[in-house]
Design a protein around this nucleic acid. Structure first.
Length: 827
RNA sequence: GCCCGGGUGGCGGAACAGGCAGACGCACAGGACUUAAAAUCCUGCGGUUACUAAAAUAACCGUACCAGUUCGAUUCUGGUCCCGGGCACCA
């Protein structure tokens, strides 16, 4: 017999069989519990990499396991197909983005099928198909109708390399998330989604996501950035208007020694117009705005500012405080104006040191402590109020409440909540995206395209003019249209949608992917959604995952879906690393899925990626480790082939007097079933599940060796081999299918029930007990399971070594952990 | 700076509720099979020391570091160091 199995032949054979059998097609079946497992759909770059394989291998095990467990499993795949690379390819190679994308999809689809992934391909979607983006546009209009989409002129993030704007979430440390170029600020009129309306719910509902990693929830909470505090209205000396500030430390109001406005604040120029300060302030403001657009690191910025010659009046003590403009105050957050409390805020402290503004201490850590003259740093911690008039002596928390109450009573302010989250900028000056379904009519203004006229088709035959912004804007046939309202001439919106919109709802579409009447049918989404298990990279912690949650809540409010959260459980997988770096062409450490398939087959590739590390952690690629996975699969293959006789005999031999070896094997088998089930179901412990199966296989080999030449319990051997195949089926679907048929079955192994373990088999007559003296391991003894405690202690104390260690000493106590150890404490 | 993870043999990792540290795999070493190699199978494999011809055995140390709680700590608590990730003046 060969030492190795012919993976190429086997994998081809069963791939074809599964396709012919429609093995992975699913339909709504209210009689069975559903399970929706989903891997984040990929961008069709044209090639699968190991990160994809890891992602899909995890999802496939989860899907196959639940199918065997009796669930009706939805496991779809599709393509996040709009985006920049297609445009670049078009420019570089003179091929239309639609064609380039379609051929990439075809080749990646083929590679996925090689891997034997259990997708229902009838539900495949591609976001660039009119059948799909029609509904993306429909959803845009739904948002528009609900007042959640609006056009607005604002200072936005601009990536000079991608030649388009970016949402805040898509700027990573000042750089573009996609191309890493430095992002600059630009004033543009753009479409936004009002995600800030949902800030509170997006934050609060994080608590309901018990199946999400804490780290992702914390990242989202930080991104939303909720702060509780107060707005305080300051009158302006000599004028009728007022300035409103937002603060989280209203308790420090008596320590406010100045006020600062953001450079963009409308009052800034108002204060200095026509005065000698106008020119320097103007210069300062322009410079501040320019620098803000360029500089990445706030440390480099320092704290520049300039006095405006005006004074605000502290409504609590009537004190006049100077009003400054400074670059460290942001117009977009709070009210764009801050009360400066240098003694109790690090930034204000630094600013006043620089510009010679006095500090006043109003919080002391202890009651009655002497108030120091000098401070070396701001005191931002807890304490008690001083120098604060009627509020003296209150603790910080109490003062915050008391002062908020006072503000509201006197009508000079109110409690307020501020968020760091900004509205989602969704327009992009790119061709390869879903057109925004809006027209501009000279007569009627902004007019949405009627829903029944969708899709607004993206012209496929595009010509890219280098250096121009959006190619769509140059396509006269596209731009010129008629107004849906008055029928007069109108222009189309030429910006397209952020591709994150397309990916914010695809998991709903899978439930009803071929629906031509609606984005999805109610029955289908109510049955399948939410996604029970979502699997993907941590890099989407606040991008795709936040946007999708937002979309789901809007669809919920519109009555289109029943769930308020899209993903019940989330698994964030680690990266695939080789030689200490992420695999990349520039590092020259890339191993392609195709190489591995060619050399060892899909099962080995899957098994290795699952075995080498737990899914959340980074995976260190090791060619030798792959070799080990390959060896193991062959070991299983040989084990079955070497024992084929037990499947051919009709009368199986099960001697009545089963010996220790038999009991031992049967225990191992059922213990393995139990552990593998729990590992996969509860812990995503694929690495330990596989190692447990390896132990079982080793045990079966040992059993054969032990009983070589003796009468075998063929019934037990057969049970062991069959169940080993079943346990391995989700991990190595091709090999196990082959073996399942080899041992004589006609149906697919992937239609079998997951094995249950037999409690009886797990009952042991003897256990090993560890004997410790003063917590140090000294002996191990085997005793009957139900040996009474006194007898166990007696036996332990009677052991020669233990006697030697306890002789002449006082036994203080004996700790007994049933079934595990006893610890004799002596003095 | 703030907020999260993580640190266990030569390597990837295991130890699930405070109870045998190092499962499983890789690498390595020795042996079997072979004319030979590959493949396969078997055995060993954290460190130090003692004893010994060798094996066996035993003691001590050991889960980044320092304290603490406990009969007992990789696991819990406090502090320190290092590595990785997120945020970026958010008042």
């Amino acid at each position: 017999m060969d030492q190795h199995y012919d993976f190429a032949r086997i994998e081809q054979k069963w791939k074809k069989y599964w396709e012919e059998e429609d093995l992975y097609k699913v339909h709504i079946d209210p009689g069975r519990p559903k399970y929706y497992v989903l891997e984040m759909f990929p961008y069709p770059s044209g090639e699968l990499h190991m990160g994809h394989i890891r992602n899909y291998s995890i999802g496939d095990v989860v899907a196959r396991f639940h199918t065997m467990k009796g669930y009706n499993v939805l496991h779809p795949m599709g393509w996040d197909a709009f985006g920049m690379p297609a445009e670049n390819a078009a420019i570089e190679r003179g091929i239309y983005p639609a064609q380039w994308t379609a051929s990439n999809i075809a080749s990646m689809h083929r590679q996925q099928q090689e891997f034997g992934l259990s997708y229902d391909w009838d539900r495949e979607v591609a976001t660039c198909h009119p059948d799909y983006y029609r509904w993306t546009q429909w959803l845009f209009l739904l948002f528009y109708q609900r007042g959640l989409a609006y056009k607005h002129k604002a200072e936005v993030n601009w990536c000079p390399s991608c030649q388009t704007v970016l949402a805040n979430e898509q700027v990573v440390s000042g750089n573009c998330w996609r191309c890493d170029s430095q992002v600059v600020k630009k004033e543009l009129e753009q479409w936004f989604f009002r995600i800030t309306d949902y800030a509170e719910r997006l934050l609060k509902d994080l608590d309901t996501l018990e199946g999400w990693p804490e780290s992702v929830k914390i990242m989202q909470a930080n991104w939303i950035g909720r702060s509780e505090g107060a707005e305080i209205i300051f009158p302006i000396k000599g004028r009728d208007d007022t300035i409103k500030v937002f603060t989280t430390r209203q308790d420090t109001i008596y320590g406010a020694t100045y006020m600062v406005l953001a450079p963009e604040h409308p009052l800034v120029m108002d204060f200095v117009r026509g005065t000698k300060r106008e020119e320097p302030v103007q210069r300062f403001v322009q410079e501040a705005i320019r620098r803000r657009g360029e500089t990445v690191d706030p440390e480099e910025l320092g704290k520049e500012g300039i006095f405006l010659g005006a004074y605000a009046i502290n409504p609590f003590n009537g004190e006049e405080i100077p009003i400054w403009v400074a670059d460290y105050v942001l117009m977009e957050y709070g009210t764009g104006a801050v009360m400066g409390v240098p003694a109790h805020d690090d930034r204000d402290f630094e600013f006043t040191d620089l510009h010679g503004i006095p500090k006043r201490i109003v919080i002391m850590p202890e009651k009655g402590a002497p108030i120091p003259e000098e401070m070396s740093e701001a005191y931002a911690a807890d304490g008690y109020l001083v120098n604060s008039g009627p509020f003296d002596g209150l603790a910080v928390k109490e003062a915050q409440e008391a002062i908020a109450d006072y503000l509201e009573e006197k009508g000079i302010g109110r409690r307020a909540v501020s968020y760091k989250l900004r509205d989602w900028l969704v327009s992009r000056q790119r061709y390869w995206g879903a057109p925004i379904p809006i027209v501009y009519c000279d007569h009627c203004g902004v007019v949405p395209v009627p829903m029944d006229e969708l899709p607004v088709m993206l012209p496929e035959k595009v010509v890219f003019k280098p250096g121009t912004i959006s190619s769509l804007a140059h396509m006269e046939d596209f731009v010129h249209t008629t107004c849906p309202q008055c029928g007069g001439p109108a222009r189309r919106e030429t910006d397209t949608m952020d591709t994150f919109i397309c990916s914010s709802w695809y998991y709903f579409r899978y439930a009803d992917a071929r629906n031509e009447e609606a984005p999805f049918g109610k029955e289908a989404v109510d049955y399948w959604l939410p996604v029970d298990q979502y699997i993907g990279g941590i890099e989407h912690a606040v991008l795709h995952l936040l946007y999708s949650r937002f979309f789901t809540k809007v669809l919920y409010d519109a009555g289109l879906v029943k769930c308020q959260e899209p993903f019940t459980r989330l698994l964030t997988q680690g990266m695939v690393i080789k030689d200490g770096h992420k695999m990349s062409k520039s590092k020259g450490n890339v191993v392609t899925p195709e190489e591995i398939i060619g050399k060892y087959g899909a099962d080995t590739a899957r098994l290795f990626t699952l075995f080498a590390s737990p899914p959340e952690r980074d995976l260190d690629w090791s060619d030798q480790g792959v070799e080990g996975a390959w060896r193991f699969l062959n070991r299983v293959w040989r084990l079955v082939h070497n024992n084929l006789d037990v499947f051919q005999e009709k009368e199986l031999n099960a001697p009545a007097t089963t010996g220790f070896a038999d009991k031992n094997l049967r225990y191992k088998l059922h213990d393995t079933i139990k552990r593998v089930t729990e590992d996969v179901e509860k812990r995503f412990g694929f690495n330990t599940a596989i190692s447990t199966i390896m132990e079982l296989v080793n045990e079966i080999y040992r059993y054969r060796d032990q009983l070589a030449g003796k009468e075998l319990n063929t019934a037990l051997l057969r049970e062991s081999l069959e169940k080993t195949i079943l346990l391995l089926a989700p991990f190595a679907p091709y090999l196990t299918e082959e073996l399942w048929h080899t041992i004589g079955y006609g149906d697919s192994v992937h239609r079998q029930r997951w094995p249950d373990y037999d409690e009886e088999a797990l009952i042991q007559e003897e256990v090993q007990i560890v004997v410790q003296v003063n917590g140090r391991l000294r002996e191990r003894i085997r005793v009957p399971v139900n040996l009474p405690q006194e007898e166990l202690e007696e036996r332990a104390l009677g052991l020669e070594r233990i006697q030697g260690l306890t002789a002449g000493k006082e036994i203080v106590k004996i700790i007994n952990v049933p079934g595990r150890l006893i610890n004799i404490v002596v003095k």
